[in-house]
Structures are given as C-alpha cells and as structure tokens.
Nucleic acid binder design. Sequence first.
DNA 1: TGACAGTTGCGAATGATTCGCATATCCATG
DNA 2: CATGGATATGCGAATCATTCGCAACTGTCA
Lengths: 140, 140
Amino acid sequence: MSKERRKRLEQALRGAGVRVTRQRAALLGVIAAASDHPDAAELHARAVAAGAGVSLATVYRTLTTLQAQGVIDKLEFQGEPARWEAADEAHHDHMIDLDSGAVIEFTDDRIERLQAEIAAEMGYEIVHHRLELYVRKSRG
Amino acid sequence: MSKERRKRLEQALRGAGVRVTRQRAALLGVIAAASDHPDAAELHARAVAAGAGVSLATVYRTLTTLQAQGVIDKLEFQGEPARWEAADEAHHDHMIDLDSGAVIEFTDDRIERLQAEIAAEMGYEIVHHRLELYVRKSRG
DNA sequence: TGACAGTTGCGAATGATTCGCATATCCATG
DNA sequence: CATGGATATGCGAATCATTCGCAACTGTCA
C-alpha cells in the first residue's frame, strides 16, 4: 500500500467520523502488510512487535470499526477464532487446505451468477454470501 | 422417521460402539421431529419439555457423538451458536433470511459441479464445503 | 446376571470476544 | 497552534457458547 493510498484511506475514515489514532494506524499497517489471514490475537502480537502500544480490547474494537467502514473483511471458518483480511476490490471466496491450514483465495463468476440466480428464483436477493471449500491436495 | 428406521439407526450406532442411552434416544427423537434448525440450548429445552432428564453438557456431548457418526450435521452461521439438523441423504446448502432468521435449504448440481471443478483445477479435492447465502426478500 | 467400558451430571474451566468506566487523545474550530 | 469535547483507549471484569474433570451410574455382551 503506497503512502498516497494510505493517506487517502485515512482521510476517508476521518470523513466518516472515525478517528485515526496511533493504534488504528498501526493496525492498518499490520493488516496491509499481512499476506496471510491473521486472527485478532495474531494482529495484536504483530502490532506490539512493531512497537505499537495497543491492547487486545482495542484490537477487537478497531477490527469491528474497520469492518463497518468496509476497510477489512472478517472470515469465520469452522470453529476457529475469526480471521481478518484487507478488503479487496474484488470479492473472492476461500479454499482451506485441511492439512496445511493454508487459505487460498479464488473467484469464479459462474458461481457468483448461479448464486444470484438461485436466490432470485426463490424471491430473494443476496446481501452477502459465504463459500468455503475445505480441501486436500489431490493424490498425484 | 418410522419405528423401523429408528431401530435400524440405533442398531447401527450400537454396532459402532455407541450406546443408545435414554438421553441419546430422546435427543434423536427431538432432532428427528424438528423441522427447523435448533441450537444446543433449544434441543435441550425440547428434550426436557418432552420429559427426558438430560443435562446441557450431555446434549453437547451427544451432538458431537452423533455428528461423528454422520447422523446429524452441524451448521455454524455467522457468529450465532451452532445449529443442528438431521443428516439428510442428499447434501444441501443454506440460505438465511436476514430479516426473519429463517433458514431455507436448497441444492444445485451446477454449483456442486463447479466447485469440484475449481478445486480440481488448483490441484485439490473437496472434503466438504459450506455455501451460505445471506438474503433478503426481493422488493416486489 | 455381572463386570466394566462407555455415559452422565454437576459445577468449574476455557477461549474468544465484549463491556464498564475512568483516563487519555484526536482534530475541527477558533 | 491552543482547546474543547466527543471519541478512543486500557484495564480487568463479565459474557456466552462450549468443554472438562471426576465421581456416580448404566447399557451391553458374554
């Protein structure tokens, strides 16, 4: 994330009445830098490791706030603590490798279309959805 | 569920080394009778209302056991307590009406096929998956 | 029928997340 | 660039769903 982009983002938050505090800036940085999908405790650890004094409670509150602003997404996989990721321009779904725990992102327009179609057939419109594939490497 | 079917099911459980206790039989009954998707507390309440003495802890343990036997399925929707349903012959996905909280079941072979296809393309095979559509009635 | 591994009930423990409240801090405004 | 006052923060206590420890039972199968 460029400094330019960061500035614009922070300005947008301010515009929405959300203060950009030291703690929030630190978390934005940690999340932007993450290429994986960390949970609250992990984000807290990284922020602290980066020298930011932040409490776990504030991490939780900030995550909720940033999610409400559409800046990050919350991932709730089967029974484990919630994980977070920077909100991407494009929506994507997740594939979870059961052996390694790795989370792989993917998109498929055909599936997106089908979902909308199915909902429409039953008189509904989709507000949001969740598609998770729990997978294992194919025997080669 | 016929008495015949019930007997076969209980026999199968015994065969797997799972005792069919008073409490478990009661829960099987409650789950079979449910047309909705109750959580553990609700199942406990119904079992108690039906005259079965069961503790909540046992309800939890039994649900886990029955799930391991493939008799019931666990549903974990966004942030609410887990819900349960009798394992159906056929797999199905869920649509959650955000206004009423109603859970609607549906299946679509095209989606199932696409999922398998996508996973295969990336060198994986699906162990299980989860597709939830959070919806709202279309403006009519 | 008897033995005993599998179950139950209870209450205490857990783990993730949230809350209350007193204190500290952003930042639009002057 | 100082300041007010709404917003945030930190701390520990509180919640909520779920799990556990352990002593007392009870299906099952021989």
